[in-house]
Amino acid sequence: MVAPGEVAPSGAGALPSDEHQAFRLMRFQLRDYLRSRRFLLMTALTLAIGVILTVVVAHYRGGLVSSPAAFYGSFWGGGVVVLIVFAGIIYGGDAIAGEFQHKTGYFLMGLPLKRGTIYQGKLLAAYLASVTAVVLYLAILLLNGIYYFGMNAFPWQLGASLLLALVYLAALLGTTFLFSSLFKTSAYAILVVAVLFLFGFGIAQDLVESLVKIEPWFLLSYASPVIGNIFANPYPTTSTSFGVTNYVASVPEAVLIMVIYFVVTTVVGYLLFSREQFT
């Protein structure tokens, strides 16, 4: 029996729908990620960031543990953004480029899959692999929070911030996949993505704000501080670093920037991948 949306080939059962194939590909890709050295590296980085922040908070305490919102705002907001950037580089940097360089793409391309299905399955797998790091970091955070404030002191902003972090992760992975689609060599793709997210966006934002003096709404890095800012009451409208007053994206602005980044980069990345030839 062929279910709606499925195609009946000869010789096998019904060919799964595109969505089912993307889900199935994601499962195997995720399994590969979770068994890989990059998963160990990501877990080690997550633990390192968690341990460092645990030690810093335990040592300095003071304002950091003055209230649950202050604690979660600094501990979560400060750490998870860095963590997501690392996850994007590690899981997304060579996700597409690696298919060419390591020749695994030749295996996938022989299967009855649309290119969009491959892109979708890999993006989902990278997203879920990155979420494991976010969840691990959240667990470290909650253990610290429970230690300082007990079981009943979780600010409402924590849930909202977690959702914002997940949207930011999607936007960041969409962007890393776009750059990964530009290259056929893993090292180039990872290098470009790493430079872009660790330095490029930050430098561009500083230049735009200090020299051009306009709101850098077109940069993803402008949106990410919302993950920590949401804990502040009242929500900040500007921030100051090294004596320079900077713009701060409001929650709706930040969400819009992230969603637009995700949609645009995913569409462009897919279009690039769909035109790539396995020469």
Partner: peptide, 30 residues
């Protein structure tokens, strides 16, 4: 969907076993 394809000695995801790799192919092919 009608064809079995082997071109350019491709690589399978290294952490998968042959059984898992074939399971992946079987799942994707329905």
């Amino acid at each position: 969907s009608h064809a079995g394809v082997l071109i350019e000695s491709p690589e399978i995801y290294p952490s998968l076993s042959p059984t898992e790799a074939l399971e992946m192919v079987a799942e994707l092919r329905g």
